[in-house]
């Protein structure tokens, strides 16, 4: 049996990822699959689980059975349900369930399950395979290593196999049956981690999720140069990015670093400005679908990884490019 885990907060893209992965796994091992949806009472759709199923029915056809796992709050006085730290609660629940009866336990590697899955997997002495991007015909699991320079194939040696998926592209077959839906309730009576504040920061489009990324490197030459990069990014609805050299120079905050020691991105369009193309940086952006590079050095290695190259001073070039974007907007 296969067990999928999500929360009600996982979006449709994440549901599609887990569902297509489970479908592929079912084709390999021909076992039934169950989906547990963790449903905290402060989530938006807590009372509307039928709507949730209706809205997502095309994405749920890989599962034979769905459980609406209602998490109710019974903690002491002065405490509010919204104060809980979700991964801690889900870990506690899973440790009490008989999940070791499942052979494969699968989730997306989001902010909750990337924490929960290895934690629980260790307790059950299973195989933990994280950041999975593929399954091959021998049931080996593919994950990127050395910051994306290599792909490694792993064979689980223990059951259950605990999996988090980094990304997975596979056609989901339209299901002709809606899976059976059951409910189960659990009560939270105590917890050790308290959520005391939630702070929103306006930082534009999130780097890892951006459809377009405009990145600057050493060639940008300083903080002022990044103002041009930011301008292009905002006109394109893109996120900004940077190479390690630009981050180390202090021109931009480290959370924007793309590379083996930074973020890995896979946008539809990656625009590399003043980036020479050290292998460290390439590792973080080589999954981009289309790459445009602007550099004054015709021998810069970045051109080996680019679809389009522009040999020009970036300031002059971007200033002209910005004018065109402003007109079209």
């Amino acid at each position: 049996m296969i067990l999928g885990l999500v929360t009600l907060e996982n979006n449709q893209k994440e549901l599609k990822t887990i569902s297509s992965f489970v479908q592929k796994l079912k084709e390999e091992i021909n076992k039934e699959a169950e989906l547990w949806v963790f449903n905290f009472e402060f989530f938006n759709n807590f009372e509307n689980f039928d709507n949730y199923i209706e809205q997502n029915k095309n994405l749920l056809s890989s599962f034979d059975k769905i459980i609406n796992f209602k998490v109710l709050f019974e903690a002491g006085e002065g405490a509010a349900a919204t104060d809980v730290y979700i991964p801690e609660i889900i870990e506690n629940i899973l440790l009490k369930e008989k999940i070791n009866e499942f052979e494969y336990i699968v989730s997306v590697g989001d902010i909750i399950f990337s924490e929960v899955i290895p934690f629980v997997g260790a307790r059950f002495n299973g195989s933990i395979v994280t950041q999975v991007e593929g399954i091959d015909e021998n049931l080996l699991f593919l994950t990127p290593s050395f910051g994306g320079k290599c792909i490694s194939y792993f064979k689980p040696a223990k059951k259950p196999v605990f999996i988090t998926i980094r990304s997975f592209d596979y056609e989901i077959k339209e299901g002709n049956k809606i899976p059976e839906v059951n409910s189960k309730e659990v009560e939270i009576k105590s917890y050790d981690i308290e959520l005391i504040d939630r702070v929103k920061q306006e930082e534009g489009v999130k780097l890892e999720e951006a459809r377009i990324v405009v990145s600057g490197g050493r060639g940008v030459g300083g903080k002022e140069g990044f103002e041009l990069i930011k301008k292009v990014a905002s006109l394109l609805g893109a996120s900004i990015g940077a190479s390690r050299a630009a981050v180390d120079a202090g021109w931009i905050d480290p959370q924007y670093q793309v590379g083996q020691t930074g973020k890995t991105v896979s946008p539809d369009l990656y625009i590399a400005v003043g980036i020479s193309g050290a292998s460290q940086h390439i590792a973080g952006m080589n999954k981009s679908k289309f790459v445009v590079s602007v550099n004054t050095d015709p021998d810069a290695p970045i051109f080996n990884y680019s679809n389009i190259g522009i040999i020009h001073d970036y300031k002059e070039f971007l200033t002209e490019f910005i004018k065109l974007l402003e007109v079209s907007n």
Binding site: S127, I128, L140, C150, Y153, K155, K158
Partner: peptide
């Protein structure tokens, strides 16, 4: 618990 089979 987990074996690396190959690397590409």
């Amino acid at each position: 618990n987990l074996i690396i089979e190959k690397i590409e």
